[in-house]
Design a protein around this nucleic acid. Structure first.
Lengths: 191, 191
DNA sequence: GTCTATAGGAAGATAGAC
DNA sequence: GTCTATCTTCCTATAGAC
């Protein structure tokens, strides 16, 4: 992939975060990237092709940033909190990525093409979280009775739900973070 | 509201469930409702007004159907399960409503106009669930230590997250239901 | 209240020069 | 590879008759 293509995809993520997949206009993207619309068609064929490639691009970004969380944590349980709370921060980059991710998921409901790559990225994320939960169990900071995969799937789903409520203005970011911390405690507690 | 308006709004929910908010074409809606596009503008002013009214319409439907759940349950805890699992069923009407609800939430991220009514409907739903949790606590079928509002907000968020994964093809409905049952148990358990 | 017909404009996509 | 210019299609919205 050329540098030009990368810069177009970066611009596409910004435009999607600002206006949604629904609001992405090829002309607007061209302006954001500082090029002509014709060049976008030259590189990506049509609007659908552009979207597909943009979504792959978002996934690659996301994979990069979960690894940063792992590096900062001191124990497995702390790593779990960091990993999940990472998605609920009011910074430009998190907002941009979460918005784009939410748009991707919402679009997949109506667009067959997006479903498989989305399911795959979801699976990767869930597995990562499950693995951290297993480590927390092994180190004694989490109940060994919980099923790691079930817990991981519930927690990541909850993160998506909280994120959507936050981005759609139904909940503050502080409240979303508080609720998520509570859920992590509940999932890992003895019962 | 006239019968005609109701029938247009019903048709709008169906079209949104099939094609999304972005995919809703006034002409397509007119065909679905068996009328002309002009009549839609006559009744709702413009496309945005139509969307706003459709959102309200979906909320009214949803309110109606939570009351059915209340009627069937034998105790507060059972009522909670019915109330939440109601949203995760593979029937046409649930699918239609959930899809439309997800679309409206996703659209609200970019559309100021939809935010306030959406937040209000969310609040109503969360309060209802919180109230059922309080009753479950009072009857001894749920731990009195859990904060009902926190639990209600987490559970309803989880329902939205699970529903989106299901509708976007990242999870089966059976798995979504299983995970939700587990979450209810976790939220209500002593810890 | 409801229709037919259409204005008017936005957005996707392409032709052809450089 | 990249641009300018433009074609075409599609869609919202309205005018005006009934």
């Amino acid at each position: 992939m050329s540098e030009r293509q990368k810069s177009i995809l970066d611009a596409a993520v910004r435009v999607i975060a600002r206006a949604g997949v629904r609001g992405l206009r090829v002309e607007q993207l061209a302006a954001e990237a500082g090029i002509s619309t014709a060049l976008i068609y030259y590189h990506f064929g049509d609007r659908a092709g552009l979207l597909r490639r943009t979504l792959e691009h978002i996934n690659e970004d996301a994979a990069g940033y979960t690894q940063q969380a792992a590096a900062k944590a001191t124990d497995a349980r702390g790593e779990l909190e960091l990993l999940l709370l990472l998605e609920l921060q009011d910074t430009e980059s998190v907002r941009t990525n979460s918005t784009a991710w939410g748009e991707l998921r919402a679009s997949a409901v109506f667009n067959e093409d997006l479903r498989e790559p989305l399911a795959e990225s979801t699976r990767v994320w869930v597995d990562e979280v499950a693995e951290v939960i297993r480590r927390a169990q092994a180190s004694g900071s989490a109940s060994p009775l919980a099923d790691p995969l079930d817990a991981a799937e519930r927690l990541t789903c909850l993160v998506e739900g909280l994120s959507e409520r936050w981005l759609s203005g139904s909940m503050t970011i502080a409240r979303a973070r508080k609720l998520l911390r509570g859920a992590i405690a509940a999932e890992l507690a003895e019962r």
